[in-house]
Protein backbone atom coordinates (compact mmCIF):
# COMPACT_ATOMS: atom_id res chain seq x y z
CA UNK A 1 0.00 0.00 0.00
CA UNK A 2 1.18 3.48 -0.86
CA UNK A 3 0.24 6.10 1.73
CA UNK A 4 -2.08 8.74 0.24
CA UNK A 5 -0.61 12.03 -0.94
CA UNK A 6 -0.97 14.98 1.39
CA UNK A 7 -3.08 17.95 0.32
CA UNK A 8 -1.15 21.02 -0.83
CA UNK A 9 -1.92 24.28 -2.62
CA UNK A 10 -1.58 23.85 -6.37
CA UNK A 11 -1.41 27.46 -7.56
CA UNK A 12 2.35 27.55 -8.17
CA UNK A 13 3.07 23.90 -8.90
CA UNK A 14 -0.08 22.28 -10.33
CA UNK A 15 1.61 18.93 -10.95
CA UNK A 16 4.39 16.99 -9.29
CA UNK A 17 5.12 13.27 -9.35
CA UNK A 18 7.75 10.65 -8.69
CA UNK A 19 7.62 8.64 -11.91
CA UNK A 20 9.72 7.25 -14.75
CA UNK A 21 12.79 7.43 -12.52
CA UNK A 22 12.46 11.17 -12.06
CA UNK A 23 11.02 13.82 -9.83
CA UNK A 24 9.05 15.69 -12.45
CA UNK A 25 6.29 18.20 -12.76
CA UNK A 26 4.88 21.44 -14.04
CA UNK A 27 5.45 24.88 -12.50
CA UNK A 28 3.25 27.83 -13.41
CA UNK A 29 5.07 30.91 -14.68
CA UNK A 30 4.92 33.86 -12.29
CA UNK A 31 4.62 36.37 -15.12
CA UNK A 32 2.67 34.76 -17.95
CA UNK A 33 -0.60 32.98 -17.20
CA UNK A 34 -0.40 31.02 -20.47
CA UNK A 35 3.06 29.66 -19.74
CA UNK A 36 4.20 26.74 -17.62
CA UNK A 37 7.64 25.28 -17.02
CA UNK A 38 8.21 21.55 -17.36
CA UNK A 39 10.92 20.53 -14.91
CA UNK A 40 12.56 17.29 -13.87
CA UNK A 41 15.41 15.81 -11.82
CA UNK A 42 16.57 12.23 -12.46
CA UNK A 43 16.98 9.75 -9.61
CA UNK A 44 20.60 8.82 -8.89
CA UNK A 45 22.35 11.25 -11.25
CA UNK A 46 20.17 14.30 -10.39
CA UNK A 47 20.45 15.28 -14.06
CA UNK A 48 18.03 18.19 -14.37
CA UNK A 49 16.01 19.84 -17.10
CA UNK A 50 13.64 22.80 -17.28
CA UNK A 51 11.88 24.27 -20.29
CA UNK A 52 8.58 25.97 -21.12
CA UNK A 53 5.56 24.22 -22.59
CA UNK A 54 6.64 25.81 -25.90
CA UNK A 55 10.01 24.09 -25.64
CA UNK A 56 12.10 27.15 -24.80
CA UNK A 57 14.87 26.47 -22.31
CA UNK A 58 14.50 28.01 -18.86
CA UNK A 59 17.00 30.86 -18.44
CA UNK A 60 17.56 30.03 -14.78
CA UNK A 61 18.57 26.41 -15.33
CA UNK A 62 22.03 26.99 -16.83
CA UNK A 63 24.68 25.20 -14.81
CA UNK A 64 22.47 24.48 -11.82
CA UNK A 65 18.96 24.09 -10.40
CA UNK A 66 16.59 26.94 -11.23
CA UNK A 67 13.82 28.20 -8.96
CA UNK A 68 11.30 26.02 -10.80
CA UNK A 69 13.22 22.89 -9.85
CA UNK A 70 13.55 24.06 -6.25
CA UNK A 71 9.79 24.70 -6.16
CA UNK A 72 9.28 21.18 -7.49
CA UNK A 73 11.38 19.71 -4.67
CA UNK A 74 9.47 21.78 -2.10
CA UNK A 75 6.04 20.66 -3.35
CA UNK A 76 7.13 17.04 -3.71
CA UNK A 77 8.19 17.04 -0.05
CA UNK A 78 4.79 18.49 0.88
CA UNK A 79 2.92 15.91 -1.20
CA UNK A 80 4.91 12.74 -0.56
CA UNK A 81 6.97 13.48 2.56
CA UNK A 82 10.71 14.13 2.57
CA UNK A 83 11.67 10.54 3.24
CA UNK A 84 9.90 9.13 0.18
CA UNK A 85 11.31 11.88 -2.06
CA UNK A 86 14.86 11.27 -0.80
CA UNK A 87 14.49 7.51 -1.22
CA UNK A 88 13.10 7.84 -4.75
CA UNK A 89 15.81 10.25 -5.90
CA UNK A 90 18.45 8.17 -4.08
CA UNK A 91 19.64 11.16 -2.10
CA UNK A 92 21.71 10.03 0.89
CA UNK A 93 21.75 12.66 3.55
CA UNK A 94 24.56 12.50 6.08
CA UNK A 95 24.01 13.66 9.66
CA UNK A 96 20.60 15.24 9.06
CA UNK A 97 16.94 14.44 8.53
CA UNK A 98 15.67 14.54 4.96
CA UNK A 99 13.94 17.86 4.32
CA UNK A 100 13.30 20.19 1.42
CA UNK A 101 16.59 21.99 2.19
CA UNK A 102 18.80 18.96 2.79
CA UNK A 103 17.49 17.13 -0.28
CA UNK A 104 18.03 20.16 -2.54
CA UNK A 105 21.46 21.03 -1.15
CA UNK A 106 22.73 17.43 -1.28
CA UNK A 107 21.73 17.18 -4.93
CA UNK A 108 23.20 20.58 -5.81
CA UNK A 109 26.52 19.87 -4.12
CA UNK A 110 26.88 16.77 -6.31
CA UNK A 111 27.19 19.19 -9.28
CA UNK A 112 24.53 17.42 -11.35
CA UNK A 113 24.68 17.47 -15.16
CA UNK A 114 22.11 19.18 -17.32
CA UNK A 115 19.85 16.64 -19.04
CA UNK A 116 18.67 17.07 -22.61
CA UNK A 117 15.08 18.18 -23.11
CA UNK A 118 13.87 14.71 -24.14
CA UNK A 119 11.84 14.18 -20.96
CA UNK A 120 9.83 17.39 -21.28
CA UNK A 121 7.33 16.08 -23.81
CA UNK A 122 6.49 13.00 -21.79
CA UNK A 123 6.24 14.97 -18.51
CA UNK A 124 3.89 17.45 -20.16
CA UNK A 125 1.74 14.70 -21.63
CA UNK A 126 1.56 13.03 -18.20
CA UNK A 127 0.35 16.37 -16.81
CA UNK A 128 -2.35 16.60 -19.48
CA UNK A 129 -3.31 13.01 -18.71
CA UNK A 130 -3.57 13.96 -15.03
CA UNK A 131 -5.84 16.92 -15.89
CA UNK A 132 -8.07 14.60 -17.92
CA UNK A 133 -9.06 12.77 -14.68
CA UNK A 134 -11.28 15.77 -13.91
CA UNK A 135 -13.32 15.15 -17.04
CA UNK A 136 -14.15 11.50 -16.37
CA UNK A 137 -17.72 10.79 -15.26
CA UNK A 138 -18.38 9.10 -11.90
CA UNK A 139 -20.30 5.83 -11.97
CA UNK A 140 -22.71 4.09 -9.62
CA UNK A 141 -21.84 0.65 -10.97
CA UNK A 142 -20.04 -1.18 -8.17
CA UNK A 143 -16.25 -1.50 -8.47
CA UNK A 144 -15.48 -4.50 -6.22
CA UNK A 145 -11.76 -4.16 -6.96
CA UNK A 146 -11.67 -1.02 -4.82
CA UNK A 147 -11.95 -3.30 -1.77
CA UNK A 148 -8.19 -3.71 -2.20
CA UNK A 149 -7.69 0.01 -1.69
CA UNK A 150 -8.92 0.90 1.80
CA UNK A 151 -8.23 4.35 3.22
CA UNK A 152 -5.38 4.59 5.70
CA UNK A 153 -4.82 6.91 8.62
CA UNK A 154 -1.09 6.64 7.98
CA UNK A 155 0.42 9.76 6.42
CA UNK A 156 3.20 10.03 3.87
Amino acid sequence: MVPPARPRKLAKVPFVELADGRLQGVVSSGSDIERVYVSSVAAGTYAFACSTNNNRPCGGARGGFCNHILALVREAVLQYGAERVARYLRVEIVDAEPSEQTIASTMMSARPPQADSAAAASVFSRFLRHLAYLELAPTTLPVPEMQWFPPSRAVA
Binding site: A5, Q79, Y133, T139
Partner: peptide, 8 residues
Protein backbone atom coordinates in the same frame (compact mmCIF):
# COMPACT_ATOMS: atom_id res chain seq x y z
CA UNK B 1 -20.45 5.62 -6.33
CA UNK B 2 -16.91 5.87 -7.64
CA UNK B 3 -14.97 8.52 -9.50
CA UNK B 4 -11.54 8.93 -11.03
CA UNK B 5 -9.70 11.81 -9.35
CA UNK B 6 -6.45 13.74 -9.48
CA UNK B 7 -4.04 12.45 -6.81
CA UNK B 8 -4.04 15.84 -5.07
Amino acid sequence: VSAPKPDT
